[in-house]
Simulated scan of single mutants.
Amino acid sequence: MDAPISSSRSIDIELYRELLAVDSTSGKERDLALLLARRLPQGSSCQARLMEVGDGTLNLQLSWGTPRVYFCTHLDTVPPYIAPEFEPAPGGDIKVKGRGSCDAKGQIMAMYSACRELEREGLSGFALLLLAGEETGSHGAKAYARSQPGGEWVIVGEPTGNKMVAASKGTKAFDITITGQSCHSGYPEQGVSAIELFVDFVNQLRATRFPVDPVTGTTTYNLGRLASDNPQNVLSDKVRFRLYWRTTQASDALVTATVEGMAGERVHIEALGGDTPMSYATLEGFDTTIAAFGSDAPRLSNFKHRALCGPGSILVAHRPGECVMLSEIAQARDQYVRMFKQIIAAQ
Rank of each mutant, 00 (worst) to 15 (best):
G310L: 10
M325F: 13
D296H: 04
E270G: 03
F293W: 14
A307V: 00
H305T: 11
A292R: 11
A297Q: 02
S327K: 07
I314F: 01
D275F: 04
S327Q: 08
P277N: 11
S301H: 08
I314L: 05
C309S: 13
L315K: 08
C323H: 15
A291W: 01
F293H: 07
V316P: 01
E322V: 04
R299V: 00
E270W: 02
G321V: 02
G312E: 00
G312L: 07
S295T: 14
L326P: 04
G321S: 10
P277W: 06
S279C: 11
S295D: 04
K304H: 13
G294Y: 15
D287N: 14
I314K: 00
K304L: 14
S279Y: 10
F293N: 04
A291S: 15
S279H: 13
P277F: 07
M278L: 12
G274P: 09
L315A: 11
H318C: 14
V316Y: 05
C323G: 00
S295Y: 04
D296L: 09
T282G: 09
G273Y: 10
R319Y: 03
T288D: 04
L326T: 02
I314W: 00
R306C: 02
S327D: 07
G285L: 12
I269Y: 05
V267H: 10
P311Y: 10
S327H: 08
G312F: 06
V316T: 13
G310F: 06
T288R: 13
R306T: 05
S279D: 12
M325P: 00
F293Y: 15
P298G: 02
A291I: 01
H268N: 12
Y280S: 05
H318Q: 11
C309I: 15
F293R: 02
V324Y: 00
A317L: 06
C323M: 12
K304Y: 09
D275S: 15
L308A: 09
R299I: 00
L315S: 13
L300I: 03
H318M: 08
E322W: 04
V324F: 01
R299S: 15
F303C: 06
S313Y: 04
F286K: 12
V267E: 08
P311D: 03
P320R: 13
H268D: 12
G312Y: 02
A307I: 01
C323A: 14
C323L: 10
R299H: 14
G285Y: 09
G294Q: 11
G273Q: 11
I269A: 05
S295R: 07
L308T: 05
R299T: 02
K304N: 07
T276I: 08
H318L: 11
M325L: 15
A307C: 14
C323I: 01
A317N: 06
K304C: 07
T288F: 05
M278G: 03
T289M: 11
N302D: 02
G321W: 10
E284T: 14
L308K: 00
A317T: 07
